[in-house]
Design a protein around this nucleic acid. Structure first.
Lengths: 198, 198, 198, 198
DNA sequence: CCTTAAACGAGACGGTACGTCGAGTCTTTCC
DNA sequence: GGAAAGACTCGACGTACCGTCTCGTTTAAGG
């Protein structure tokens, strides 16, 4: 009933905070490739074992740092699918069109895909918007606005995949019209219409 | 008229081949994270400087190894857009649904995005199918099969991005129906129809 | 009063011992030219950085290894200058007439003459016998056995220099009579005598 | 009857000269430790094999460079042993009191003591003055100026050894009075005298 | 209040790989 | 057919980090 508190000195919340702060700054400034446990320890004034006690390697630390700001907040105001989805995509693109987006991509690429830590990162940072989008689509279906294709998963990938595709490949920037264009094309594919009889 | 041959011992084509072969095998077997110049040199019986004379680091070497098999061959038979695009996507998915696909993704993520080598890799390995797809779409437009949206670039990203998205994030496999589903949804977005008057 | 212990894990005395032992063996067996930090690390089962943390390069390591056996012990029994100096020279020649002597010479030649490490090596290994000899000469002067020349430094160089000269140039071996001959000639130069009036 | 000309392109005397010049400059400027075949080839505009065709390694090249200026010229004017020997020692000290002296010492220390090249270097550069000194001593003996000790070799080592001893150990400079002091002490040891009856 | 136990900083440890330099050899074209 | 140029294999360099391991020092909970 009592909180099962173990004896001994409890982990320092301050140390954890300093580590994550330093790691995040370093990620933004120098990129994932320069994020070393050694440097984070030195710069945050913390011993290396204190880091290794919480994260197994630099990838996990990077993921923790990228998650530490809380989940990406997505605006989803909108009375119909188009406006809601556009608002969401706009804030998503805005959040990723920075250095941070590229670092998230690189961190994910470097992470052990089987690790629990990686799965949590994936769900919180990468797939949460995809799930939000799925909800929007389902609501719109209920409202009769759209008719979803058989394979909704693929539709979702077609909406959210291009964001990471551009970050990864870098052939084109994540710019302003990107969100609108995606929504427009996606809705053309699913929009209900008397005009789409067959 | 004579071939402008420089003096000195010419680079050994054999060495180059052995290096690329070893690097490719190592990529497939152990992954990009384990591909070290040291190990490639040791395993291919080549000196490290011989590797560094041609590639600046492990990333470039990995890209060279992944390109050394020649470009991915895409089937594009088909009389209409749907069949041609489906054939292409099928062979693309098949080519990437292996370990190689994941390694290509990780290699690209780790590469210096500004390097000339990276750009070549991107064009040859990642974007060549996208360009082929663009050609298919344009031909179909000429034939009157489809009406392209304003932002064709985004449409192309929606077709090819999901492949890398799934490789990168790993939330779903690149399976059989994937190619068909993408083509189906994409064509729904652009298919010409009297049924889509305005 | 308490020993001023710095924080952190203390250097491993075992590692240091293993390194010096290995380096010394290698010096005697293969010579200074073959003493590489790489080989010492491999053979002593120690990481390279552990060596570099204590010595800046192979020269310093070699000097440390040559000093690690403690200073050369010189016998100096003798009631008069001749017997004392002869005893000292005999043990000096014996100590240097081995491979070790040649390695000391080569190590000294290769060392940075300005380095503090080199100076310590010089004083402990090369000049300590010279200083002992100076003491013997001074005592004998006090006893009235000899009259020293103006430039005692040169006299000392004439006594001890030939040892290293033969090691370096190799024109003649460091053999048994060498010690006696040097002492005999040196004493001829300084021996007091009514026979050497003015 | 025809001059015995071998076929093929004759060795370039110019190349040889350039190599030796470059090697000598490099020795004086950067020291023996920095004299690499690579650098000499690059700086003299000659291929490495051209160097290796004539010298087996950097040591031999260094010795050749140090010998290329011709033997050290020693003044030996003097009517009696003291003046002749002093003149000789003065010019010897002067010749070696420069960077060149130290490089000669280091080169000798690094050379393979068994090699023919090393022996030639030793005889021409190191021991020639010693032999000249032996001649002076013998002439003086004939003239009745001095009585040589049993072991003349050791006496010679005591005269010439200190020069290299100071160069090698560096505890004292090769300065002006050095030559005089050595001669003075040496002559005290061998000077004939009624004053030295026993 | 005073053990007890864990987390702390510091930093050395054995390792792996880095990217560079130089050695000495080999292969080609040029005189 | 040797000179010259330059790529080759090889080995060692000295550095950066890895992830682990003592150390001696806090810091809190529980006896």
């Amino acid at each position: 009933m009592s909180p099962p508190r173990r004896p001994g000195r409890p982990p320092s919340q301050l140390a954890r905070t300093k580590i994550l702060k330093t790691a995040h700054d370093m990620l933004i400034k120098d990129g994932f490739g320069r994020l070393t446990v050694e440097a984070v320890a030195a710069q945050s004034g913390v011993g290396k074992p204190t880091i290794y006690r919480q994260w197994a390697n630099a990838s996990e630390l990077a993921m923790a740092a990228l998650m530490s700001g809380g989940p990406v907040k997505l605006e989803e105001s909108g009375t119909n699918l188009r406006s809601a989805l556009t608002a969401q995509m706009r804030s998503l693109v805005q959040a990723f069109a920075t250095t941070r987006g590229r670092q998230i991509t690189m961190t994910l690429a470097a992470a052990d895909p089987e690790s629990e830590y990686t799965k949590a990162f994936r769900n919180q940072v990468i797939l949460s918007s995809r799930e939000a989008g799925r909800a929007l689509l389902q609501e719109a279906t209920v409202r009769g606005e759209v008719t979803l294709p058989q394979d909704v998963e693929v539709l979702l990938d077609m909406i959210y995949g291009p964001v990471y595709y551009r970050l990864l490949v870098g052939h084109r920037p994540l710019d302003a019209g990107f969100a609108e264009s995606i929504v427009a094309i996606a809705l053309d594919a699913v929009a209900n219409a008397d005009r789409k009889p067959r």
